[in-house]
Nucleic acid binder design. Sequence first.
RNA 1: GGGCGGAUAGCUCAGUUGGGAGAGCGCUGCCCUUACAAGGCAGAGGUCACAGGUUCGAUCCCUGUUCCGCCUACCA
Length: 885
Amino acid sequence: GGFEVRVGIGGQVAGHFITEGTKGVVLGDKVSLAVDLGQNARAAAGQNVVLPGTDHAGIATQNVVEKQLMTEGASRESLGRERFIERVWQWKATSGDTIIRQQKRLGESCDWDRLRFTMDEGLSKAVLEVFVRLYEDGLIYRGERLINWCPRCLTALSDIEVEHEDIKGKLYAIDYPLEHDPTIRLTVATTRPETMLGDTAVAVHPEDSRYNGLIGKRVRLPLTSRTIPIVGDALLVDREFGTGAVKITPAHDFNDFEAGERHNLPRISIFDDHAHMDSNGLTEAAVDPEIMGKILLRPVRETRPIIIGALQHAGLLLKTEDHKMSLGKCYRCKTVVEPYLSPQWFVKIKPLAEPAIKAVEDGRIRIVPEGWTNNYLGWMREIKDWCISRQIWWGHQIPAWYCRTCNGTVLTSTKSDGSWIIPREAQPVVAKTQPPLCPVCGGKEFVRDPDVLDTWFSSALWPFSTLGWPEQTPELKTYYPTSTLVTGLDILFFWVARMIMMGLKFMNDVPFRDVYIHALVRDAEGQKMSKSKGNVIDPLHVMEECGTDALRFTLASMASPGRDIKLAEERIEGYRNFANKIWNATRFSLMNLDGPRTAVAPAERAFPDRWILSRLNHTIQLVTSELESYRFDRAANALYQFIWHEYCDWYLELIKPVLQDHTSPDAPGTRQTLVETLETTMRLLHPFMPFLTEEIWQTLPHQGESIAVQRYPTSDSAWIAPDMEQRFGLLEQTIGLVRASRVLLNYPPGQQITFYVAHNEPQRQRHLEQLRKYLAHLGRGAVDLTPATTWPTGNLLRLITEGLSVGIVVAGDVDLNKALDRIVKERSEQTKEIQRLEGKLGNQEFVAKAPPEVIADHRDRLTSLRRDQAMLTSSEQQLRAMLGE
RNA sequence: GGGCGGAUAGCUCAGUUGGGAGAGCGCUGCCCUUACAAGGCAGAGGUCACAGGUUCGAUCCCUGUUCCGCCUACCA
């Protein structure tokens, strides 16, 4: 029933925060839960939450430790796995880690022992369970595929770990002579000529009449003694591009790898894991000895000019041209990434993706804003098997063992540190713990797979692993599935999609109902802010300058869907001023709370009270509905508008006379309204400005310990008063004209004046009479409400709008030209509008086809404008007379 | 190359069933009026990117163009 659990990362869940132990704070009937993926969550209440999740920050820490070891003349291998990981923990807990730095700055500590426990025991349990079950279902396999490989870190990289950089490259056209007739040459185009040594075929389009006669024939591969076949491949070859012929290098290009599988081509890997020219590979490729001697063991990048030179020498390099392309680089060391053939672990993803696609299609999971749904579906439908192994040491080691007896011929041990090289042929035994005996041969000696899992693998289990799964805990029962996941688009696929897949697979239910994709905060150049790029605006700094609440409110107010946030300092300052305004309004209220307060029925209260209650009720409805549709920007703006421009600008001004007059019969009711509306507004604002509202709420008369656990305000129909809002509109209009007149006549705001007010409509005229004391107070003067016909004709400035006339006595010798200019300008604008409306209403087609209510509205406006203009004209004539014109 | 989004006031951006163009900051003028100068009041400022189309009527719907951003694939 009434539980709502909101989960977010980075502590950025609007208005909701966390405390330790309870895994959530009860907000009325809602439960909020915010957890940081990297154990970096800071509760808004100043507490830390440590839940078992995957420690992405640990990867960066690991890199630091590796560098340290290098300077000490050591390496992770010389240290050994256990001592290396121990050292990473030490580093995290003492100095280098960003988490600990922040926490030290905030004067807090982190429970590292508990963190270690959850990392080692809590999460590992779930990871092992999932890995083994997926393996038993045939959904995890060990295979040889191309992966993005960093030749410096010597590890596989996921898509998110590769950074792309646009470069100007070259496109080389190379001639491959036909085997049966070397005078005929097939020209292929490539951006990576050095990989041609590993070609195992050339592809042409099967329907390309230029070449399709050659399919099945063979070409001589230049610089080698091999011949390779010509195949027809409609997927790989674009007839329009280049020469229409493509070389296929299955071991060094992703597309070529797939083409190679389609045509059963051999894969020749010509470089090693350091991206150096490999002797085995070059031998297998049958490279000419002369070339071999020049390139053996050299880095790939250095071999390109050598190969180009050799091809040129042989007269086979047809041409080179400039070509735009982009280069993948390792996110850690910025080394150019190579597609590299190596044994890795994969998750067969299609069977997991299909239910996850269906869950979104049939609405069990809703993506907000829904524009991203197609992105999700498109990505999921074209998903490729997921490489989950990483050749690093920080993380969950893959639970696979190799029997030394069975794999004796293929396992090799490197001498220095005793670690093992495990080729693709090796047969693993997958189990949660090392098996006592080999199921095949009964052998007792095993080598464990040295790879660890991609951090996203354990992250994918987050919705249930954090709740104690695979045990059937009460927490799991209560909190799975959650209601809403709040996250950024950048990890929709890496994290969200995988949580959905794993949730459906292991819990038989979606992990959450709504996925709210929030805007990304970008810097001034529109770049994504990220820790690794270092272009992050330090939130702690901004918080010191403008306050935490101002920052939070800014982010909420800018969170328009489908648009990224370019964080501007000025905007935050604007909301700092807003926070200041609220403080001052509170100060005013507290100064005026002395004296009795009586809670009479809203309808019995004074006009300002009834009006502000009605507006507050309206704001509650608006904010609530906007929050429910995830429009945090609109909700924030509604609050800003209400608090500043209705509550402060008008309500507090309206009630000053009553509060200052201790004999006023309205005072007890107004004091009650004042505190009631402020308290309610604070609760309404609390999700957006938690600190300030808590502080203020504590100083107001209240019940309960904290504003955080009070009910969120709900609409109260007794507060609704449309007639009071209508009267307020009249008051606002009148005061507006009075103030404008003051400026035109250069009357200082404090100077008492006499002004006349009249309205064409009798009902409005009666309202004016009821508003008399408020008009006098806000207009700062004596009000005369006699009909306009009885007003003095001389020495009076009259302004008119919508049937309302305001006249101000012109005293002494003031310059009336400013006033005249204003009236003339206003009249000309009115004339333009009248002409526009007359034109439309004179248009037969408009009258015939437009909806009746639009026509009626136009007619009303025209009538009103004509009436105003008549009065304005008379006012202008009077003014000219006074000027002696 | 494909996909998606954006182009509205000097700046940052709202504007959801097509009918009078908005906010915040900045700017101008006047005010230290006992909650607030991080403030109050008044005001200036826009051919809603460009060109067509649909419609009685387009910032809004459709098509095309230009520029910008993001995602994705890197076509050899």
